[in-house]
Design a protein around this nucleic acid. Structure first.
Lengths: 229, 229
DNA sequence: CTTTTGTATTCTGTATGCAGCATTTTCTGT
DNA sequence: ACAGAAAATGCTGCATACAGAATACAAAAG
């Protein structure tokens, strides 16, 4: 990754077309979040208000507001009188997050089997098939993205906003890690196999099974990334 | 509740003594959070930047930053071009939150039995005894506060930062509700009895038992508050 | 050469000002 | 009197400006 830092798309210019005048706050938050996740802002980096604001083409005020938002999300840390730094996660932190994520997904699995519509399940199946396709081609990036989407989709099926919130926060915090985690072929194959079990269990609405597989999947996730943390 | 809205303590004056120049941001966040929890700012209320800032004796800038922080925490909702309003929770929202909280506390119970020091457990016991004392006297407010503290303390014993974070967010969101929930004598007695089971299980480091009791306790919590939501 | 202290610069924290959007009030035509 | 339009008001969103804290640097003392 390590992209150049680019100014935000603002479309404040009189360009034609439907002006997506999305609130700057949201845009900034997403942008910064992505920069952190993708490693443009690595852990420990100080978020320099003046400099960063200039690079993004935004004044300090909305930038500071976005930083505060991300601080509450746990991606950056606020140091009094010294600004904000990108939070650094220890191996234990990652393990802890995965432990909680595991519990949440087990719950999501149970709830999803009860609450999901057939159409919803079909959508997850579609994502799954697409992911397997990417796996066979060896497209790691798209594989990862679809992988995340599937987990999020299952959580969505649970129809529990609080659960979705908590899951999203942890998943975001972990994205930076998972993004890096490059497992070998055999572990990758194992992960795909687990996903296969997942989708089958979901389609069968087998609560216990789905919950178990999701839990196991995340336990193994730790094994897969522990080396790189 | 419904206190007067008071200006923040700032100690910017040249008063003697160790100046607790705690960052204004943190102070503001806590203050606003409390105002929301205690009902000074009820759900649906618009957070008027100018007015509120004047009442608190703070300019709009830091106030806006604090609001953004609380938005990420889920206590307020940001409406583009129309500011922020205190988030309103439906009965389903509360139920969903309790469901997740239940799962998290079950996990916390298991981890606490493994990780807790004897001293840590003793502290929880002390809180528990104090709570029972308050119960017998009928001091509802202190009872509630100690109740919350005990749950938080058990989560702390689990030594899992991510778990503590998620738990804190949900507990904060729910505080507003629980604060209101005034159960009758018999339900109150039942709750205390459950707490008794909890502390015994914790002292015995009985993972399964503690987890089970915590889960049951929160299921019952829903029964206790559902009427008032 | 190392350490310390005073100064200068840089950055954060807070306040204020201005422009644009939303809403409400008022004016006008029927 | 009533409906619609236009003006006016109030508020948010963003930018800028100023003050205080922290850091970096440099000069002087040991």
């Amino acid at each position: 990754m390590m992209n150049e830092i680019t100014p935000l798309e603002r479309r404040a210019d009189g360009g034609p077309g439907p002006i997506r005048r999305t609130a700057l706050h949201d845009t900034l938050v997403s942008h910064l979040r992505d920069m952190i996740i993708e490693g443009d802002l690595s852990p420990g980096t100080r978020l320099h208000e003046g400099q960063l604001g200039e690079q993004l083409g935004v004044s300090r005020t909305p930038l500071r507001e976005a930083i505060k938002y991300l601080a509450s999300e746990g991606l950056v840390e606020l140091v009094p009188s010294r600004g904000a730094v990108v939070k650094r996660f220890s191996a234990k932190d990652v393990h802890d997050m995965l432990t909680v994520l595991q519990t949440l997904e087990e719950l999501a699995g149970k709830l999803a089997c009860e609450a999901a519509s057939d159409a919803g399940i079909a959508e997850v199946r579609a994502l799954h098939d697409e992911m397997v396709r990417r796996y066979k081609v060896g497209d790691r990036l798209q594989y990862y993205k679809l992988n995340q989407q599937i987990h999020s989709a299952i959580v969505q099926l649970a129809e529990n906003a609080a659960l979705a919130d908590m899951h999203a926060v942890l998943q975001t915090r972990l994205k930076r890690i998972r993004f890096i985690g490059h497992e070998g072929p055999e572990k990758w194959a194992a992960a795909v196999a687990e996903h296969d079990e997942m989708i089958v269990a979901l389609e069968a609405r087998d609560k216990a099974k789905l919950s178990e597989v999701l839990g196991r999947h995340l336990m193994n996730a730790w094994e897969r990334v522990r080396a790189s943390v």
